[in-house]
Each structure stands twice: as C-alpha cells, then as structure tokens.
Design a protein around this nucleic acid. Structure first.
Length: 361
DNA sequence: GGGATTTGACCCGG
DNA sequence: CCGGGTCAAATCCC
C-alpha cells in the first residue's frame, strides 16, 4: 500500500517535473523568434499531456483508495517477467544457424511469460492530411518493422515494430500499428514495454527542433500502400547518447537474463534541467521490477496533437480496478488520440533513493 | 555492403 | 484448430 503511494508519488513528481521542464522549453521558445508555431504548440500539448497524466494518476489513486475498483488483477508476476523477454535470437548468439529451433524451445518458454506482464498502452492518432499532423505518427523513437499481419476483421494489416536498438542495447520496447478500418486516418498504436535504450524522444535541447524533422516531411497518408506505416528516421541525439555511455552498466549481457536488469537504470537528461528532474524512479526493481522506467515511458504522448483520455490500469493491490477513470482533456483538440495505458506495477520497495551525482560527473 | 523491410513459416495461447 | 505475435531468409534501398 504504502509502496504504491510512494511509487505513485515518485512518478507524479517526475511527471510534474517533466512538465515543468517542458514549460521552460516553451518559455525559451516564446522568446525565440525563430521558433515555429508548431513547435510551441507541440510543447503546449506536451505540457497539457503531462498535467493530464499527473492529474489522472491522482484521480485514479483517489478512486483506488476510495472505491477500490480494480477489475483485473492483471497478474504481474513482477518477479521475473518482462525482462526475460530475450527471444533467443537476441541472447543466443545470432550467428547460430546450426540446429534449428530445437534447443530454443526452453528459452521461448519463459519468453512467453513476459508478454502478460509487459506494460502496454494504446493510443489512437488521427492524421488529417495537410493539417501538419503528419508527424503524429512519429513518437521520436526509431522503430524497426519486424512483421506485418492481417488481422481478422481488420481492414488493414497490423504492423509490428520494435526498437531499433533492441539488439545493441537490449531495448525491449515494441509497438503495433493498426490502421482503423472505418476511419483510415486513424491509427491505433499500441506500445509495449519500456524503452531501455538511449533515445530521448521528447526531451530535446530547447534550441534543437522539437520533434519535427526539418528536412523530412512525411506523409503517413501516403504510405505506400495505404497500409503500412514507415518508421521514421530520427536525429541522432548524441548528447544523451554520450552522456549515457559513460554510465551504461553492463548492457551487453542484459539480454540474456533478467537478473542483469536490476543493475541498469535510466533517466532522462534534458539539457536544461539537471537538477532533481533526473532523479527518476531508477532501479525500480531492486527486487523484481521489470525494466527501466523513464518519464518517456510515462509520457508516451509526445505528439503534436494530444490527448486524450487516459486510462490507468494498475494492478497494485490486486483485484478490481474499474479503471473507468477516464479523464478527458479539456482541450478540445480536433483529433484527440486516445491513450490507454496499463502498467503492471507490483509492489515496489519505496525505500530506494538514487544519487546520480556520481554518474554525472 | 549493411541496415531496413517484406513475407511466409513458426510458435503459443485460448 | 485458429489467430495473433515473432522469427528469419530473401529482398530492397541507400
């Protein structure tokens, strides 16, 4: 119980801090003649999104305490899951083309378990042609498509993407993109898992272009065959990369077993907020968690136009959560993506504190 | 040539 | 057995 609230508090703090950082960025943008309107609006949206999330968490928490309505335990076997992902292709040296799938079997078994506990959230994005929302499908991460499948009853195939850095950094984040049948301008994007890679989608230095890729107009509507979304390119964010390189903790082996995950941590480094902003929930799982937790995860919605109704699905204290705690944004955005998230946290040890000072210097 | 995408096969859970 | 998710060889593209 207390664990929960403690965790919640940390998340809230990081969310709010994140929002504040965004506001600062906005402030800078406002005094910057070169700043585009889109950039500003984007920031505004992000800020609002941040607020929404924070608020909804509070509300949800409240309702939890008050009514305790959790419908689904959403079994989160926090102990082992998620990180155990490691599809053999990852861990077992890829260059093994010898015996086929025989010996993979056992590994695959535990991999299957993770799926259930992998957090995921869905977002609907509508892309209206010509309204500058093309980039809506760009969430700032670099994805690599690994599959496409026709889904029963769906007009368009579903695309499966995973983080480009999966192999290198063991980033387990994936997403599915499903184009809506009745409204082809709507894409439902389901994210799964956290990014444990170095990408920092929504916290670019204030003076660098926010989200948009200058020389790269993209038009999802023109996806070659109306049914596939192309992954977007992305600016290298070396700053963060380098930064992090210095403190990467044995990422080489982390694919192989979950146990190494506990040692890794991750936090955002935004250029202008070096203070407490970065003290995020780190090493959440000292005992069991499932990966990293970064604000970027909490703010998957970094899109040009947002938000949304947010649905949180905690499985903390067990049974029942009616998560009908839907918070609709006051902002009447024409196209309001819907974010629908569920993160199977279990109990955490709230006691941890994390001092990043040692890493920064 | 290397990385990304395509696409049919495979695996697993329901 | 069926459908969704993933793998991986073939292919594409820069």
């Amino acid at each position: 119980m207390e664990n929960v609230s403690n965790l919640e508090q940390k998340i809230l703090i990081s969310e709010l801090t994140h929002g504040r950082a965004l506001a600062k960025q906005l402030q800078i943008h406002l005094s910057m003649p070169s700043s585009s309107r889109e950039a500003r609006e984007s920031l505004v949206q992000k800020i609002l999104a941040s607020y929404e999330k924070a608020l909804s968490m509070l509300k949800y928490n409240g309702s939890l305490a008050a009514t305790t309505t959790i419908t689904e335990p959403v079994t989160a076997p926090i102990g082992n899951a998620l990180a155990s992902e490691s599809p053999s292709s990852l861990s077992a040296s890829p260059h093994s083309e010898d015996s086929d799938r025989d010996f993979k079997e056992h590994e695959i078994k535990d991999a299957s378990r993770k799926r259930k506990s992998t957090p995921r959230w869905t977002k609907q994005v509508s892309v209206s042609p010509g309204s500058g929302l093309e980039q809506s499908l760009d969430d700032g991460y670099v994805w690599r498509k690994y599959g496409q499948k026709d889904i029963l009853g769906a007009k368009y195939p579903r695309g499966y993407y995973r983080c480009t850095h999966r192999n290198v950094q063991g980033c387990l984040a994936t997403k599915q993109v499903q184009r809506s049948g009745d409204d082809p301008t709507i894409f439902e994007i389901t994210y799964r898992g956290w990014h444990t890679c170095n990408q920092a989608p929504d916290q670019l230095p204030p003076n660098s272009l926010p989200q948009e890729k200058p020389g790269q107009p993209q038009d999802p509507i023109n996806l070659q065959n109306q049914n596939q979304i192309q992954p977007q390119e992305q600016q290298p964010q070396d700053l963060l990369f380098n930064f992090r390189n210095g403190l990467k903790v044995k990422t080489e082996n982390l694919e192989t077993n979950a146990q190494t995950f506990p040692n890794s941590f991750f936090f955002h480094s935004s250029s202008n907020t070096k203070d407490e902003t970065n003290v995020f929930v780190s090493n959440l799982q000292g005992n069991n968690f499932m990966g990293h937790f970064s604000p970027s995860y909490l703010s998957p919605a970094t899109w040009g136009s947002n938000i949304f109704s947010l649905e949180a699905n905690h499985n903390f204290q067990g049974p029942e959560s009616d998560l009908d705690e839907i918070v609709s944004a006051g902002t009447s955005v024409s196209n309001s993506p819907i974010v629908d998230l569920e993160y199977p946290f279990g109990t955490f040890d709230p006691g941890f504190t994390f001092d990043i000072s040692g890493f920064i210097s």
